[in-house]
Amino acid sequence: MDIQVEAASAANDPLGRALHLLRMTGVIYCYSYLHPPLGIALPPIPGCLMFHAITAGECWLRVPGAEPVLLRAGDFALVPRGEGHDLLSTATSRADAFFGLPRVQLGGRFEIMRHGEGTAPVSLVCGAVRFDDVLARRLVHALPRQIVLSGQALGPSNWLSPILALLQEEVQHLKPGGEAVATRLADVLVLQAIRTWLQNDPGARTGWLGALQDAQLGPALVLMHEQPGTPWTLASLASAVAMSRSAFAARFAASVGMPVMQYLTLWRMALAQSRLQEGQVRLAELADSLGYQSEAAFSRAYKRWSGRSPGSERRVEDVAI
């Protein structure tokens, strides 16, 4: 195999390839009417991205480790890592547990919640979605603790306000098929919000995300992601992207935060866990597809990494590398 040619055809847009895999599965969607004084504590949902689309009123979003932010009508907020967080009337309000509040199930994964009494409620569409692809989960894990977008701040390219208006219409006047339309619109909002942050925020040019956009590190990452069974070495990867071994190793570690071969091992283990959790996979075939010479060698590597044997793996948690 001509590794140089393979690298050239692997990807002209590594970040775009990762975005292409951001296909999500909805876990829960909830349309909420919340009357002040407002204080709702949403629990952590591991492995999920959570979002809030504000259609009327305003409330504070408080995520651990991030500054509280005031959300107004027309804003859209993401909590990418599924961390527990609060929606509040004021930045210091007390919060009640979300799952202890009454909700009406509308079928499927969609529900409505009404909380409190009075005038001028805050209305919002909230949800939690899961990304099943390993690379998509890696991208979402690289996002900050919270992302907040405002239609006004987007200026002439404001895509947010019209989608929010459609979403509000669907959830306020439920029609046949309304649940399906509302969930699709929410999914579009999530994808567009991630794309907008990646395009505009300086933080998207650092770390693993920055490496994906690097002219040489990006193609190297694609080779590891898409050809995990190739017997890559530091030297062969460096050669594939036309870099010296030492320069490639130094730039990769500085950008990604770990040595090349450690990243490759963690990537292979993440793929292994995902495939094992899906079931119906033979260990020998899995080992071969990930570049291991034998089932025994793969099993030892997997147990060193996870503390469990491959045969005992269950879908207990998502992988973050």
Rank of each mutant, 00 (worst) to 15 (best):
V260P: 08
S123G: 06
V181E: 14
L212K: 07
G155D: 05
W159G: 05
V188S: 09
V181F: 04
I163F: 00
A211K: 08
A165D: 06
E179V: 15
L223R: 00
M243G: 04
N200C: 11
T183Y: 02
D214E: 03
H173W: 12
L164P: 08
L143E: 05
E170D: 13
S255Q: 05
P202L: 08
P176W: 11
P156W: 01
L221Q: 00
L166C: 10
L160Y: 05
Q213S: 10
G218P: 05
S246A: 12
P202C: 04
V256Q: 00
L124Q: 15
L135D: 13
A186G: 13
G178N: 07
Q213M: 03
R205F: 06
A249S: 11
A211V: 03
L154C: 03
Q168E: 14
A120N: 15
A215C: 00
R130C: 13
A142M: 05
L143C: 12
I163P: 00
G203F: 06
A204T: 01
G127L: 09
S123V: 11
H225M: 10
R145K: 14
V148W: 04
A247D: 02
H173K: 11
T206H: 11
A254F: 00
I194E: 00
R245N: 13
L217G: 05
G118N: 11
E170H: 09
L154D: 08
D187W: 06
K175H: 15
M243F: 04
E179M: 14
L154Y: 11
R138C: 14
A242H: 13
L154T: 11
A142K: 09
P228Y: 09
V129S: 14
W159S: 09
A204Y: 06
V140K: 12
L189E: 03
L124M: 14
